[in-house]
Design a binder for these strands. Structure first.
Length: 255
DNA sequence: ATGGCGCCACATTGGCGA
């Protein structure tokens, strides 16, 4: 089973690239973030036409998440239970016996902003819910845009980014609390190229200069991690015309 | 250096992302 996560930065604009990605990589499950579409505008027919079922939770302009799957999606759940949130950032569904949790963690803007406090509260709520979810679903994958670079090696310029949003200690501590639930960062299960990133600023030729951060992740529960054979960042999608600023991340599991 | 790019909307400028 091949799992993927991709922040598309507007599915309306990026639908052709998504269809190319599906055709080229043939993922079994894809978690999308920043669809930026209300549900009635979701391109359901176009995606179903190429062999995927879809579940989505969107809103106008900002946020929005979706799960695509070749196999049926069951027990679909939007949002974190018990956590009031207008922003559409979480979607969970079961595929076969695997629980797929698609997340778009808040950006936080800057460490001294209200949005940063929202990010930390959000992460606490997510972690509390996942602890329960893991007892119900030992086979669980947590995929998406985390807006956290877990370590300095995930940052092109750790000195410039030190204590800045996406790299600060409170955010990295929240990431470690997710790991402490028994989740593995699939990317780090394998030897990887130096300076591997999943997001590059559109500005100042960020991609060409590889000025990036690794903030998109696929975390796997122990039961899934032992079956993971590959995990990579698909930089090819970032090279296309009108790319998303994020590259897809992919993890492959044996059945 | 608070610039730069890309997307969106009560749009032709401002908010937001990361």
């Amino acid at each position: 089973m091949k799992l993927a996560a991709w922040n598309v930065n507007s599915l309306k604009v990026r639908l052709p690239q998504l269809l190319d990605f599906l055709a080229m990589r043939q993922p079994d499950v894809v978690c999308l973030q920043e669809t930026k579409l209300e549900n009635h505008n979701f391109p359901k027919a176009e995606i179903e036409a190429v062999g995927y079922q879809v579940a989505f939770s969107g809103q106008k302009t900002y946020n929005g998440v979706a799960i695509l799957s070749k196999k049926p999606l069951v027990d679909v759940q939007a949002g974190i239970p018990g956590f009031e949130d207008e922003q559409k950032r979480v979607l969970a569904a079961t595929v076969n016996d695997t629980r797929i949790v698609c997340i778009y963690i808040p950006n936080g803007q800057s460490v001294d902003s209200d949005k940063f406090q929202y990010k930390l509260k959000w992460l606490t709520a997510l972690t509390g819910w996942l602890k329960d979810e893991l007892t119900r679903h030992p086979r669980l994958a947590l995929l998406g845009d985390y807006n956290i670079a877990p370590e300095d090696r995930d940052v092109h310029d750790p000195v410039a980014w030190k204590d800045q949003v996406l790299c600060s200690e409170p955010e990295r501590d929240a990431f470690r609390k997710l790991i402490a639930l028994g989740l593995k960062d699939s990317f780090r299960l394998f030897e990887q190229p130096e300076e591997s990133y999943s997001w590059w600023d559109y500005r100042m030729m960020g991609f060409r200069r590889n000025h990036g951060l690794r903030i998109d992740h696929i975390l796997l529960s122990e039961a899934l991690a032992t079956h993971c054979t590959e995990s990579l960042i698909d930089r090819d999608m970032r090279k296309l015309e009108r790319p998303s600023d994020h590259a897809p991340v992919i993890a492959t599991l044996t059945d």
